[in-house]
């Protein structure tokens, strides 16, 4: 996953770092989370290729009205494809059916090929819609929205802490790696490398624990009682209703297309 991050790129967007109000950015975060779930479930339910192509088109359409940089978002999506490629390539050979060609005595079947395409389309459409609808909001905003959607308070706390400290800890990791590099450490497939990486992880954990003790003290000092205070109230507007209605109609359309083609 580290490939997805450029060298100077932050792990998660900082509060207030995401500017500009494209269509999706102006919507209520709760609606965006709910619609991403709806779209994901509908997409997984689709089984025909035309319907899945349409679903991917909808996700791409959403991308074009969001403020996410299309190039980087699609690159991240493509990285996931590289990840599942092996499984997809194996499928034509493991599904019995009409042979397309034979490789080293293993026949590849049309049925398997279609199944692989189907999975590839589903995975891409669902994850792209999720990234566009939810991934385009500030991470902290997602925590608040989930809290408003009655997620357990403790889980939201965990989420907020993770969001807050990922970047801090990643910088610490990069600092430790730089210190290792300065001392002439070059990773390779050997005992020394694995021991050094193990110590690195151990050191990160020790520092993380010590950091968490300081955080707890600081929080207690400010009267932390476990309640989550919201920075803003969410309110549904006309625009939210229209957008939600449009996505619902699109979802019904996708399901109808799927049924018609079957």
């Amino acid at each position: 996953m580290a490939h997805a991050l450029g060298h100077d790129e932050k792990t998660l967007a900082k509060v207030g770092a995401v500017g500009g109000q494209a269509l999706i950015g102006a919507l209520d975060p709760r609606i965006r989370i709910a619609l991403a779930c709806l779209f994901g479930i509908v997409t997984v339910a689709l089984t025909t290729i035309p319907a899945l192509v349409a679903a991917l088109a909808v996700a791409l359409g959403l991308l074009s009205v969001s403020r996410l940089p299309p190039g980087r978002t699609l690159k991240r999506m493509a990285l996931m494809d590289g990840f599942i490629l092996v499984m997809l390539v194996l499928l034509p050979f493991s599904v019995p059916g009409d042979a397309i060609f034979t490789l080293w005595g293993f026949p590849a079947s049309w049925q398997g090929l279609w199944r692989a395409i189907e999975i590839g389309l589903t995975a891409n459409a669902a994850i792209l819609a999720l990234m566009v609808l939810v991934g385009s909001m500030e991470p902290v905003m997602m925590g608040h929205a989930l809290h408003k959607m009655r997620c357990p308070e403790m889980l939201v706390h965990l989420l907020m802490f993770t969001i807050r400290y990922i970047e801090v800890l990643r910088e610490e990791y990069l600092r430790l790696r730089a210190a290792m590099k300065v001392r002439g450490f070059r990773p390779g497939t050997n005992w020394h490398t694995y021991r050094s990486f193990g110590y690195l992880v151990g050191m990160m954990l020790v520092r993380a624990m010590e950091r968490s003790e300081r955080i707890l003290d600081a929080m207690k000092c400010r009267g932390f009682s476990g309640r989550i205070l919201l920075m803003q109230e969410f309110a549904l507007t006309r625009r939210d209703h229209i957008f939600a209605g449009a996505i619902c109609v699109l979802c019904i359309g996708l399901l109808a297309l799927d049924l018609a083609w079957r």
Binding site: L5, F161, T162, L169, E213
Partner: peptide, 27 residues
């Protein structure tokens, strides 16, 4: 989890996220 352990669990959760970014050479 209780209130006292939220920071510990939260920071460790972030640590494991960062650890999953580490790539270790293998051949």
């Amino acid at each position: 989890l209780d209130l006292e352990r939220i920071p510990t669990a939260g920071v460790l959760s972030a640590s494991f996220f960062v650890a999953s970014l580490i790539h270790v050479p293998l051949g």
